[in-house]
Amino acid sequence: MTENRATRDHAERVTVYYDGDCPLCRAEIGHYQRCRGADDVAFVDVSRPDADPGPDLPREAAMARFHVREADGRLVSGAAGFATLWSVLPGWRPLARIARLPGVRALLELAYRGFLPVRPHLARMVGRLGRARE
Rank of each mutant, 00 (worst) to 15 (best):
residue 130 G to A: 07
residue 8 R to F: 05
residue 7 T to D: 11
residue 54 G to T: 03
residue 10 H to R: 14
residue 38 A to M: 04
residue 116 L to V: 15
residue 106 A to T: 12
residue 37 G to R: 01
residue 128 R to F: 02
residue 128 R to I: 00
residue 65 R to W: 07
residue 48 R to D: 15
residue 114 G to I: 00
residue 18 Y to H: 09
residue 12 E to T: 13
residue 53 P to D: 07
residue 54 G to Y: 06
residue 44 V to G: 03
residue 97 R to G: 06
residue 52 D to Q: 13
residue 88 V to P: 04
residue 37 G to T: 03
residue 58 P to F: 03
residue 90 P to G: 03
residue 129 L to P: 00
residue 52 D to K: 12
residue 73 G to I: 12
residue 50 D to V: 14
residue 72 D to H: 11
residue 38 A to Q: 01
residue 105 R to C: 14
residue 48 R to F: 06
residue 76 V to R: 09
residue 86 W to Y: 13
residue 73 G to R: 12
residue 95 L to T: 11
residue 12 E to Y: 07
residue 5 R to S: 14
residue 31 H to S: 11
residue 128 R to D: 08
residue 16 V to F: 06
residue 70 E to S: 06
residue 125 M to G: 04
residue 2 T to W: 10
residue 30 G to A: 07
residue 54 G to L: 04
residue 120 P to Q: 02
residue 113 R to E: 06
residue 3 E to D: 11
residue 21 D to A: 14
residue 16 V to N: 01
residue 13 R to G: 04
residue 128 R to T: 03
residue 49 P to D: 14
residue 100 R to W: 06
residue 17 Y to I: 02
residue 97 R to F: 10
residue 82 F to S: 06
residue 88 V to R: 11
residue 115 F to A: 14
residue 15 T to R: 12
residue 48 R to C: 11
residue 114 G to D: 00
residue 81 G to N: 01
residue 124 R to M: 12
residue 107 L to H: 14
residue 132 A to Q: 12
residue 56 D to M: 12
residue 69 R to H: 14
residue 39 D to S: 12
residue 50 D to K: 09
residue 34 R to Q: 13
residue 117 P to T: 10
residue 107 L to D: 11
residue 4 N to Y: 06
residue 85 L to C: 09
residue 109 E to D: 15
residue 82 F to P: 02
residue 103 G to H: 09
residue 22 C to K: 05
residue 18 Y to K: 04
residue 131 R to T: 08
residue 93 R to G: 08
residue 83 A to R: 07
residue 82 F to V: 05
residue 36 R to F: 06
residue 25 C to S: 05
residue 6 A to E: 12
residue 19 D to W: 03
residue 53 P to W: 06
residue 65 R to T: 10
residue 47 S to I: 05
residue 33 Q to F: 02
residue 11 A to M: 05
residue 49 P to K: 09
residue 119 R to A: 14
residue 15 T to C: 10
residue 132 A to N: 08
residue 54 G to P: 02
residue 109 E to P: 04
residue 95 L to D: 04
residue 48 R to K: 14
residue 19 D to M: 05
residue 44 V to C: 07
residue 32 Y to Q: 00
residue 69 R to L: 13
residue 62 A to S: 11
residue 45 D to W: 04
residue 13 R to N: 05
residue 102 P to D: 08
residue 20 G to W: 02
residue 43 F to T: 05
residue 106 A to N: 06
residue 94 P to Q: 08
residue 76 V to I: 08
residue 34 R to Y: 01
residue 127 G to N: 04
residue 28 E to G: 08
residue 34 R to D: 10
residue 127 G to F: 03
residue 101 L to S: 07
